[in-house]
């Protein structure tokens, strides 16, 4: 597969690889994709008191495009509010990385991961309010 220099750079020097404490209430966790499909992205966000994402981490099992998409989206959501983060479209990721059409699903997974991590964070915190 012929990749853009943006993908190659993020593959070589991935930003924000790692994990956050899943039990921390300020952390939202998402695992999307399936091993049998060849792509799994785990993405975590840590939200501060202002409701902004101040840390984002990922781990990825997948091709270069999957690694680059998830790394890029963690860069983009850092410092953003949850509304802003959820507004990031997979097409923007695919465009920035010049992903070939056959790899577009990698950017879809990255977008899905952000959405699910936010939902997880919100769920944890709404439960806290109710309790």
């Amino acid at each position: 597969m012929e990749y853009s220099k943006e993908v190659l750079d993020l593959y070589e020097n991935p930003r924000n690889v790692g994990s956050l404490d899943e039990n921390d209430v300020s952390v939202g966790t998402a695992v999307v994709g399936a091993p049998s499909c060849g792509d799994v992205i785990k993405l975590q966000i840590k939200v501060n008191e202002d409701g902004k994402i101040f840390e984002a981490k990922f781990k990825a099992f997948g091709c270069g495009a999957a690694i680059a998409s998830s790394s890029l989206i963690t860069e983009w959501i850092r410092g953003k509010s949850l509304e802003e983060a959820i507004g990031i479209r997979n097409q923007e990721v695919a465009e920035y990385l010049s992903l070939p059409p056959v790899k577009a699903h990698c950017s879809v997974l990255a977008e899905e991961a952000v959405g699910k991590a936010i939902v997880d964070y919100q769920k944890k915190n709404s439960e806290k309010v109710i309790a």
């Binding site: 091709c63 270069g64 999957a66």
Partner: peptide, 8 residues
């Protein structure tokens, strides 16, 4: 790990 990622 995924095969294409190794090749890359």
């Amino acid at each position: 790990v995924e095969g294409e990622a190794i090749m890359l």
